[in-house]
Design a protein around this nucleic acid. Structure first.
Lengths: 347, 347
DNA sequence: CTGTTAGCGCGTTCAT
DNA sequence: ATGAACGCGCTAACAG
């Protein structure tokens, strides 16, 4: 007979382990492990007794120990700028949905829009040995990239586009959205423009591309109003329009000025302020948003904006990781997701 | 001399471990461990060499192994109905903020509003051996409660209130918010009411309390319009008002009917539909929301609603867990967070 | 189908 | 201040 103290050290720690279950079921710890991971390899009698023992003891597998032994955590970690921003949370919703369906759990960190905070977060995430990692954006510090490469796990960068991803990339060109907005504005006949843009890097690229394209086509410079980085608020949009008006930046033209906003929330705030000041939208002031949030179709006038299928983007990111896990080398490392301009009443 | 193959098995697996670092630095694995967890216990010379070795190898500690050995994961897991709902995400924002500051990471699962899905999620979370668990709501299945009790870890239930929490509870009474809305409506002179309420359990309790209190005070029955469970949309609010009007439920009274909505989004939709139909708010139709979201102060008319400091609630939940970790037995197991009615233009 | 043995990479004694 | 030995609870060969 064997020494129980060596077979089930948990008797000393109080934890219910596979060995505890095995002893109760009259089988070894390994058989319990197999019963849980591959029931077909265990006899029906053993299965029955093991199930019963699990029920009695209330055994919950220790995924930490399992991960250490198998070198698979079934954990995906994700870094996003903000969780309260619907743009990122809806994207994570689609991502998590797929991942959870495949047995993966998601660990999440908010890192804001400050580039310097990403590195420490990546280190913390990698220490948990995730099977895969999701990053928002394509700009990462050199040490961060080095850590990621060394970790040698699938990494998906989303919500932007690069030809040279760390591993794979699912997103779109922010500059292209800005140019699309500009082309639309030009073809709609607008000849004067301004921008209301948060200071984060992606928003800046949208703004810059819009302004450049618009200025080139019309010969008129585009007035830029800078907004704080961080959570966009209606208040920011209102103040943006207020500045435009108070500082005489709109001037008194006979033609309407189109405002390119970095988000629908900013655009909505702009809309509200314009109405409050008696400006007609789009006759006096036209407004273009970004994101096509739920409310965009219901503002008065409804908001012309750029739509990205975020849920779909999240799902595509999940599929990119999953095909990496499956060792599918034919899977593309870059997936461009489309966007479209939703023409509504505001421009 | 010792056999390197026994000292650093990682040489076979490719992983950079503490032993790898130690060998490079000319010290043992234990010294590396100490250097990272308690630098004061290591000589300056050793520290220097260890730091250098870490730099060279790009060593990232394995938190999985650390957790298995120390029985502490520094992981908190959280179950929320929805991540795209600002109510929960803003709450998690405050919670994560505090927790991350204390060195904890957050694992998140969305479980929807379907009570049956919670149990499996709890099991999955417990298998990762979190140091603490956050649950949304106070209703959990018997097996779920049993697992939680057996896990013997701090658990905080939030966004609701009970006298008998599993461990501790941070929230408020949903029924009380309904009564507050009713008392306000009554004192504001309204004598007719209807409700637009999502079908989830907490929303139903708000609705029921509102209707009961209002009916008791006025003697008039309150018309209830049921909305789907899940993500609230503006469309749902619009359709609610449409039904109220089309089915003649508003009747042709000389007095205004006040509508109690289960969320600000629903209320906003109601507002939009009322305007579309030429109903004056609050003269023909008064509207009360729930949540005080960003936009509530900026609708036209602005939205009368109930405000809960969600960020603060999240922080209080974090503090509740932290005081459990600290073994602070004097910490209260129940914390009531306040709410207030924001009287604005819609009612 | 089942059990034995040997780690996974780290923290925790207990010596020195 | 440092190291050897051991164990955390599980999976992965390998036998039988």
């Amino acid at each position: 007979m064997q020494n129980p103290d060596r077979k089930d050290r948990s008797s000393r720690t109080g934890a219910v382990t596979m060995a505890t279950v095995g002893r109760l079921a009259g089988v070894s710890q390994v058989t319990v492990s197999r019963a849980l991971s591959d029931p077909a390899k265990v006899s029906p009698e053993a299965m029955g007794k093991i199930r019963e023992a699990i029920e009695i003891t209330g055994y919950v597998p220790n995924a930490i120990a399992g991960a250490l032994a198998s070198r698979r955590t079934r954990l995906i970690t994700a870094l996003v700028p903000s969780i309260t921003n619907i743009v990122y949370s809806s994207l994570l919703h689609g991502f998590s949905d797929i991942m959870r369906g495949e047995g993966y759990q998601i660990m999440l960190s908010e890192i804001g829009f400050n580039a310097g905070d990403e590195e420490a977060a990546i280190a913390a995430h990698l220490s948990r040995r995730p099977d895969g990692l999701l990053l928002t954006g394509i700009h990462h510090s050199v040490p961060a990239r080095r850590m990621l490469m060394a970790a040698a796990i699938p990494v998906v960068e989303i919500w932007d586009m690069t030809e040279t991803p760390i591993d794979c990339c699912v997103g779109f060109s922010h500059a292209d959205t800005g140019r699309l907005a500009a082309d639309f504005a030009i073809s709609a006949g607008y000849r004067h423009a301004a921008t209301l843009s948060a200071g984060d890097e992606r928003a800046e690229r949208r703004r810059f591309a819009f302004a450049e394209r618009f200025a080139t086509a019309t010969g008129n410079t585009v007035t830029a109003i800078g907004l704080p980085i961080g959570t966009a608020t209606l208040e920011m949009g209102r103040q943006g329009v207020a500045r435009l008006v108070d500082e005489g930046l709109l001037q008194n033209r006979l033609e309407s000025t189109v405002i390119h906003c970095s988000s629908d929330v900013i655009a909505h705030g702009a809309l509200i302020e314009a109405r409050t000041r008696g400006l007609r939208v789009p006759e006096d002031l036209a407004i273009i948003g970004f994101g096509d949030q739920d409310f965009a179709a219901h503002t008065d006038p409804s908001l012309t904006t750029i739509r990205i299928d975020r849920d779909q983007l999240g799902r595509a990111a999940a599929e990119a990781l999953l095909s990496r896990f499956a060792g599918d080398t034919s899977a593309p490392s870059i997936r461009l997701v489309g966007f479209e301009l939703m023409r509504r009443g505001s421009a």
